[in-house]
């Protein structure tokens, strides 16, 4: 296996929808072991970037490597948490069942999840504080609880590189805490986590690496270096809600409301 310092390496990625580029000539290198936030305004292509990297939508051009390998050879090392509203939560299944789906890819044909799979799923639910609701039908869970079930499913995948699409979107405080703790735990194990994020206020607190995206990559690197007022302005144009407090910018810029 060729050793690569990068968990994710994207070269010249372009994605177009009906002749309009949604992502334009993306070059991105994400070192192994970082917690990276992808931020950018609505329509910047954050979700598209993840989906194109994972081969879920066709790309017009570009090459994506995971730990130096093409997707096909790296699948077993990749975990994925889709957007919560991408599926029908009325589906007849339980939280435990969903968590076990994280093992389906590795089980192989004709094999059913056994007791060990059940234990792994329960342990993952425990880790996100959902073990007591394991037998609950997923439609009866709150939005935050559903999000935690999705995270448990990703944990069961036991991956080295995780992609999470807006896990913090519209969740309660308990869930937000649970996710933050989980990110910390994954980091400690040396995993790489890439998170689509929408809240500028918490970027510096949650992530040590950040990519600012608006169709093109505006900046990417250590949060302390690239998460600057100037880069945020360039990413969002005039559409910033409120700049995060504590950025070394002028006070009036910090209070700026679009």
């Amino acid at each position: 296996m060729p050793a690569s310092p990068y968990a994710l390496e994207i070269n010249d990625l372009t994605v177009a929808y009906r002749n309009t580029p949604v992502l334009w000539d993306i070059d991105l290198r994400v070192p192994s072991g970082v917690l990276m936030g992808i931020i950018g305004p609505n329509g910047a292509g954050k979700t598209t970037l993840i989906k194109a990297a994972l081969g879920l939508i066709p790309r017009a051009a570009g090459d994506v490597r995971f730990f130096g390998l093409p997707l096909r050879q790296a699948r077993a090392r990749i975990g994925y948490v889709p957007q919560r509203n991408s599926i029908d939560w009325d589906f007849p299944t339980t939280a435990l069942d969903v968590a076990m789906m994280g093992l389906y890819g590795k089980l192989g044909w004709l094999r059913r999840p056994d007791r060990a799979a059940r234990q792994a799923a329960l342990a993952a639910l425990e880790q996100v504080g959902m073990a007591h609701l394991a037998e609950r039908q997923i439609g009866q869970l709150s939005g935050g609880q559903q999000q935690r079930v999705f995270l448990a499913r990703a944990l069961v995948q036991n991956a080295d590189l995780y992609f999470m699409d807006e896990p913090f979107a519209a969740v309660d405080a308990v869930t937000e805490r649970a996710i933050v703790n989980l990110l910390g735990a994954l980091r400690k194990q040396g995993k790489t986590v890439i998170v689509v994020h929408h809240d500028l206020q918490t970027v510096a607190e949650y992530f040590d690496w950040v990519t600012l995206l608006n169709v093109e990559v505006i900046a990417s690197g250590a949060t302390s270096e690239v998460f600057t007022e100037e880069n945020i302005r360039r990413t969002y144009g005039g559409r910033i809600g409120a700049l995060p407090a504590g950025l070394n910018g002028s006070p009036e810029a910090s209070a700026y409301v679009a």
């Binding site: 879920l56 599926i87 299944t93 059913r112």
Partner: peptide, 22 residues
């Protein structure tokens, strides 16, 4: 019966199924 877990995952969350290599 043979493809139960695959059909189930495909119906519930096709993107996740694909990322898992199904």
């Amino acid at each position: 019966l043979a493809f139960w877990k695959e059909f189930k995952l495909l119906t519930f969350d096709p993107d996740f199924a694909r990322v898992n290599g199904l």
